[in-house]
């Protein structure tokens, strides 16, 4: 796949920008020893809320959920920034975001205790970031700017 200079520039920047966000989300959770996804899960609404509340109610499961979040976010972010296995990371990231959306869908009539920065109806920033990740997936750039350019791997 070949891009114009402008296409390549903005696509690489999009990949790295999303990677940055993921890596910082993961790192800040790892650096805060008291962080847990429990309150976020308890706050879940919509048709999947039972499932997320169930996750929150079991300490052993919660421990796994917390670890998956911390490591998942960090590794996806790192991979997108580095440009290494970034297509896999894009799909994994989109999937993770979709789970966040399912736990807190921006549907009319649902109110959350969690603060929200903006006004959303059905489409919120999580969905937009998820769609952007799918763009990253179908327009790969790691072979242009990323470790995949110098390492003998598929991007």
């Amino acid at each position: 796949m070949t891009y114009t200079k402008g296409q390549a520039f903005w696509l690489v920047l999009l990949r790295i920008g999303i990677g940055w966000h993921f890596l910082y989300e993961g790192a800040s959770k790892m650096l805060d020893p008291s962080w847990t996804s429990k309150p976020y899960l308890i706050d879940s609404q919509g048709f999947m809320s039972c499932f997320f509340e169930w996750l929150a109610a079991h300490d052993d499961i919660l421990l796994i959920v917390d670890m998956l979040n911390e490591w998942g976010l960090s590794l996806i972010g790192l991979s997108l920034i580095l440009g290494l296995f970034s297509r896999l990371a894009a799909v994994a990231g989109a999937l993770l975001l979709f789970l966040y959306y399912l736990s807190h869908p921006a549907w009319p009539g649902l109110d959350y205790v969690y603060p929200q920065d903006g006004n959303f109806l059905i489409i919120d920033k999580i969905i937009v970031e998820m769609l952007a990740l799918m763009v990253v997936y179908v327009f790969p750039t790691s072979h242009i700017a990323g470790l995949a350019r110098i390492l003998p791997v598929k991007n």
């Binding site: 690489v12 790295i16 990677g19 940055w20 890596l23 910082y24 790192a27 800040s28 650096l31 920034i81 580095l82 440009g83 072979h143 242009i144 700017a145 990323g146 470790l147 995949a148 350019r149 110098i150 390492l151 003998p152």
Partner: peptide, 28 residues
């Protein structure tokens, strides 16, 4: 890529993450 020797441009573009990771690390 695997056939040819890597150019300076390849290495620079391959390591595009370095300044970003540096900035992020510094920020954290």
């Amino acid at each position: 890529q695997s056939k040819h020797k890597l150019s300076r441009r390849d290495v620079l573009k391959g390591l595009v993450a370095v300044p970003f990771l540096g900035a992020l690390g510094w920020g954290v």
